[in-house]
Design a protein around this nucleic acid. Structure first.
Length: 155
DNA sequence: GCCAACGTTGGC
DNA sequence: GCCAACGTTGGC
């Protein structure tokens, strides 16, 4: 059982979109970074905890809780010429990009990025590291317990 | 819109 | 394999 922080631009896929999706589940499309892909492909397991983070928006921060809901499978958008995530170098036989499904657990009162930075217990969170741009980062069990125990309140 | 930081590409 | 140039991320 591991824990993750997954960034999403709320314009594209917010915690509300996830809550309203069929089965409250969405495929995590569009990851085009090898490190993030490898986390999904090699390390994620069904049931892993997910901090759902809103990025590139007026109020960045953790907006909800979710769970990994599938093992990895090829991201269909890589094959779709109409998709912004189309990858001409990917083929059905040799896909490049993988994704997992994510299922909604809970919407919470936004924990702003600035609040995360305030807490010494979270000083080493990978997502807070200077220059971090990874859209999927591991969260330690200690960080998870601190956040869900001390910072989470229902929306 | 700015810009720091990072990942990827491609020439050599 | 090196590394400069370029594109992207993401907070502010």
């Amino acid at each position: 059982m591991r824990y993750w922080l997954m960034k999403s631009e709320p314009d594209e896929a917010s915690i509300d979109h996830l809550a309203q999706a069929p089965q409250q589940t969405l495929p995590w499309t569009g990851v085009r970074n090898y490190q993030a892909r490898n986390f999904m492909r090699d390390t994620m397991k069904i049931g892993d905890g997910v901090l759902f983070y809103h990025s590139s928006c007026p109020a960045p921060g953790i907006a909800g809780l979710a769970e990994v809901a599938s093992t990895a499978y090829p991201d269909p958008t890589q094959f779709d010429p109409q998709s912004p995530y189309f990858d001409p170098k990917a083929t059905q036989q040799t896909p490049r990009w993988q994704l997992v499904d994510v299922v909604f657990k809970q919407k919470i009162t936004l924990i702003p990025l600035a609040t995360l930075r305030e807490h010494p217990a979270l000083a080493h969170m990978q997502v807070l590291a200077k220059g971090n741009r990874l859209s999927i980062t591991p969260v330690t069990a200690t960080e998870w317990r601190f956040i869900t125990g001390q910072l989470v309140s229902p929306a």
